[in-house]
Computed example of a mutant assay.
Amino acid sequence: MEIGMTETVDLKETKEMNPLLLAYLGDAIYELFIRYHLVKRSDIRPKEVHDEAIRFVAAPAQARGVRAVEEQLTDEEWEVLKRGRNAKSGGVPKSAKPSEYRYATGLETLVAHWYLTGQTERLTEMMKRMIQVLEEGEDNGE
C-alpha cells in the first residue's frame, strides 16, 4: 500500500520536529495501513474491522511488531525510534506496560519519519513485516 503524498521533508526537518507530534502523525499512518490490510482481506466482516484493528494498533502489539524488526533498522532509523521512545509523554494507557507504550511511541515516530521523508517503499516493507509477525503471533496464541 502506498499513501499519496505531495511533499516530503528532509532528515534535518524531522530531527527538528517534536517527536510526540511525529508519533501523533505516525499513529494515524500506522492505523491506516492496518485498516487497509484488514479491509482487503476477504475473511473479515465490516463490523469486525474495528475489533481486529485494535489488536494491531494497541501499544503491546506495536511494541511486539517493532521489536520483531529492530535488527533490520538502520542507525538513522534507530535514532528516530529512540527519540520517540524517550520522549516524555502524558500517562500510559492501562492496557500497556510503560516499556510497551514507549516502544509504540518510538514506532509511531519512525513511521511518520518514513512517511514524511518519502521513504514509502521502506515504510511499506516494514509495515508488511510487522503485520506478518503480529498475525503469526495471533496464530500462536500471543
Score class of each variant (00 low, 15 high):
residue 4 G to N: 11
residue 61 A to F: 03
residue 120 T to R: 08
residue 25 L to P: 00
residue 14 T to E: 07
residue 53 A to T: 14
residue 42 S to T: 09
residue 37 H to F: 14
residue 61 A to S: 14
residue 60 P to S: 13
residue 114 W to S: 02
residue 51 D to S: 12
residue 131 I to F: 04
residue 63 A to Y: 02
residue 141 G to H: 12
residue 84 G to D: 08
residue 82 K to W: 10
residue 126 M to C: 04
residue 90 G to W: 12
residue 138 E to I: 13
residue 56 F to N: 06
residue 95 S to I: 10
residue 21 L to F: 08
residue 36 Y to K: 13
residue 87 A to N: 04
residue 135 E to Y: 04
residue 41 R to Q: 15
residue 9 V to D: 03
residue 4 G to Q: 13
residue 92 V to C: 07
residue 44 I to P: 05
residue 11 L to D: 02
residue 5 M to L: 13
residue 82 K to D: 11
residue 106 G to E: 02
residue 16 E to N: 11
residue 127 M to K: 05
residue 72 Q to R: 11
residue 60 P to Q: 11
residue 136 E to N: 06
residue 124 T to S: 15
residue 17 M to Q: 08
residue 102 R to I: 00
residue 88 K to R: 15
residue 15 K to F: 14
residue 5 M to D: 09
residue 25 L to Q: 03
residue 122 R to G: 00
residue 23 A to T: 02
residue 42 S to C: 06
residue 16 E to F: 13
residue 59 A to F: 14
residue 43 D to G: 01
residue 77 E to D: 10
residue 10 D to G: 03
residue 141 G to F: 12
residue 25 L to S: 01
residue 13 E to D: 05
residue 29 I to P: 01
residue 125 E to K: 10
residue 22 L to F: 01
residue 34 I to E: 01
residue 8 T to F: 05
residue 16 E to D: 14
residue 23 A to P: 03
residue 109 T to K: 02
residue 8 T to M: 12
residue 101 Y to S: 10
residue 17 M to H: 12
residue 72 Q to M: 11
residue 6 T to H: 09
residue 91 G to Q: 04
residue 116 L to I: 05
residue 31 E to P: 03
residue 133 V to R: 10
residue 120 T to N: 11
residue 31 E to W: 08
residue 13 E to K: 02
residue 139 D to S: 12
residue 82 K to Q: 12
residue 22 L to R: 02
residue 3 I to M: 08
residue 43 D to P: 02
residue 51 D to W: 09
residue 56 F to G: 05
residue 101 Y to P: 00
residue 127 M to I: 14
residue 8 T to I: 14
residue 70 E to Q: 09
residue 58 A to Y: 10
residue 39 V to S: 05
residue 118 G to T: 07
residue 49 V to W: 10
residue 19 P to D: 04
residue 3 I to R: 09
residue 30 Y to Q: 10
residue 47 K to T: 13
residue 99 S to M: 02
residue 71 E to C: 11
residue 118 G to F: 06
residue 78 W to F: 10
residue 9 V to M: 04
residue 62 Q to H: 01
residue 128 K to E: 12
residue 140 N to V: 08
residue 133 V to D: 03
residue 123 L to R: 08
residue 22 L to K: 01
residue 91 G to S: 14
residue 133 V to I: 11
residue 101 Y to K: 04
residue 139 D to Q: 13
residue 80 V to G: 01
residue 98 P to I: 03
residue 89 S to K: 14
residue 53 A to E: 06
residue 97 K to M: 01
residue 91 G to N: 09
residue 22 L to N: 00
residue 62 Q to I: 05
residue 43 D to V: 02
residue 116 L to Q: 06
residue 113 H to N: 07
residue 138 E to G: 09
residue 16 E to P: 09
residue 129 R to W: 07
residue 21 L to T: 06
residue 95 S to A: 09
residue 34 I to D: 00
residue 100 E to W: 00
residue 55 R to C: 11
residue 128 K to G: 04
residue 84 G to K: 01
residue 45 R to Q: 15
residue 74 T to A: 14
residue 99 S to W: 04
residue 12 K to P: 06
residue 15 K to H: 10
residue 33 F to P: 01
residue 16 E to M: 13
residue 72 Q to K: 15
residue 55 R to S: 15
residue 4 G to P: 12
